[in-house]
Nucleic acid binder design. Structure first.
Length: 459
DNA sequence: AGTAAGACTTGGAAGAATCTTC
DNA sequence: GAAGATTCTTCCAAGTCTTACT
């Protein structure tokens, strides 16, 4: 591989885009200006209204200022980033409004970078890298009430990066004038490059795309041996769990933590002793997959049309998501898009009524004239009516699906917990095109399953 | 046995691309 | 054809599990 692709260097603002302190324009040092733009870009984000975010940002920003700047800039409230903010908003819109050819050109440039840095050779095969770019500098966006939100995330330099590649491969060249922190050849790990980020002091990695050999299959292909053991395991375990619970409770007061001695480490250790490869996660995957299979069996009706079958599929998928507790907040746009859909349904109903009337008229016409032309007209109207009926049905199914899905996130279980062969088999068995349930990325990731599973596959 | 560091996976949000609708 | 909605993709923080260490 060629090592990571580094975030582009900072481009100073044009002279007419000014920063104001205490109402007066102030020219900032390039490094200071760069950090200011990180904040300016986020001005209409909720983050910048939070005190912790503001304080962390201001603290880190001042650290990077020249001593003169630091002497002057003492209060965030007196900083005016609005002009900078507007500059970036405008720039963004200008980019969106670019003519087709220009956009095409930009895309080609991006593709070239992807082509050059986005792949590596693994065991003689060309594999796609998942994240081949270093994370750009910016302000840390911790979730919830993260105490470090707003802190400066520093620019990653080649000197921060450890390269991992095989001994017989060509070592990637660092950008000119730079060198790598280290080059090593460790074939016991999967990462290609790594660096330590400055906020939490944790390590970030460049790794392969989910479609690559390294990422695929390990869980699902090795698992069957584990899974057929899980069934009898469950059967005996719940008796024992009950007894153990009683034991746990005997020596405890009602307020005590029941599981003070049971943490995931202990649990995993125990499971590991029972069988190699058995961890708590395997149970979650097993439960998810077996549930999907059962639900699909129970819900799918072979006589249904594709739309109705898809509703059944989504319902089975939802049962899994509920089991895994993949809940989400109802999307902000939910009400509105539901109303839109309802309006569509109403419009379709009117169309339907209209089509019924027209068919009636055409039939009457045929009765009166009994000629070839009006017979053809009747047929045509019949066809139209059927088409509209089908469309209406589809819309209704869509509405049901949407409503049932509003507080449930399907993505994670679909991507990480469900054996794709179950879905592939289902598609083949019921004649549903695979594109209806997996988009392009998902099809890439599950290519192995699409190839191998036939309609009789059982988990 | 407990803890910290390292490796790898997961989850959800933001941004980009595409589709719809007027 | 542009504005808005929807879907896809990328990004990256945070979670889980493993390994190393004391």
């Amino acid at each position: 591989h060629k090592g990571p692709y580094f975030a582009p260097l900072y481009e100073p603002l044009p002279d007419d885009v000014k920063f104001y302190y205490d109402g007066k324009p102030m020219k900032l040092n390039v490094a200071t200006e760069e950090i200011a733009t990180f904040y300016a870009k986020m001005l209409d984000h909720e983050y910048t209204t939070k005190e912790i975010f503001q304080n962390n940002f201001f603290h880190d920003w001042r650290k990077e200022m020249t001593s003169e700047e630091r002497k002057k800039i003492k209060h965030l409230e007196k900083c005016d980033f609005k002009e900078m903010h507007k500059y970036f908003v405008d720039k963004n819109e200008a980019r969106k409004a670019l003519p087709k050819e220009e956009k095409q050109k930009l895309k080609e440039e991006a593709d070239k970078i992807q082509e050059e840095y986005g792949y590596c050779i693994l065991d003689g095969h060309r594999e796609k890298i998942g994240n081949f770019k270093t994370e750009p500098p910016g302000l840390f966006r911790g979730r919830g009430d993260h105490p470090k939100m707003g802190m400066l995330k520093k620019r990653i330099m080649p000197e921060d990066v450890i390269i991992n590649c095989s001994k017989d491969s060509k070592t990637p060249e660092p950008p000119s004038g730079h060198k790598w922190k280290e080059v090593r050849c460790d074939n016991t790990v999967t990462w290609l490059a790594s660096w330590t980020e400055n906020i939490q002091n944790s390590i970030k990695y460049i790794m392969l795309n989910p479609s690559s050999k390294l990422k695929v299959g390990v869980l699902f292909l090795v698992r069957p041996s584990v899974c057929h053991l899980i069934d009898p395991f469950y059967a005996t375990v719940h008796v024992r769990v009950f007894k153990n619970l009683q034991l746990f409770m005997e020596n405890k007061d009602p307020g005590d933590d029941l599981f003070d001695r049971l943490n995931t480490t202990v649990l995993n250790k125990h499971l590991q002793d029972l069988m190699d490869g058995l961890t708590a996660k395997v149970f979650r995957t097993y439960n998810a997959s077996i549930t999907l299979q059962e639900q699909l069996k129970a819900l799918t009706n072979a006589e249904d049309n594709v739309a109705a079958k898809l509703l059944s599929y989504n319902r089975a998928n939802r049962a899994v998501a509920i089991l895994c507790n993949h809940q989400r907040a109802t999307p902000k746009s939910f009400e509105k898009s539901m109303q839109n859909l309802q309006a569509k349904i109403d419009a379709k109903k009117e169309q339907l009524a209209e089509a019924q009337m027209e068919l009636k008229r055409a039939k009457a016409d045929l009765k009166a004239k009994k000629d070839v032309k009006s017979k053809a007209a009747v047929e045509k109207k019949k066809k139209l009516l059927e088409k509209i009926q089908e469309q209406l049905l589809k819309l209704n199914v869509q509405a049901t699906d949407k409503e049932e899905n509003k507080q449930i996130a399907l993505g994670t279980s679909k991507l990480n917990y469900l054996d794709p062969r179950i879905s592939v088999a289902w598609c083949k068995k019921f004649g549903v095109p695979i594109e209806k349930i997996y988009n392009k990325t998902q099809r890439e990731k599950f290519a192995w399953a699409i190839d191998m599973a036939d309609e009789d596959f059982e988990f």
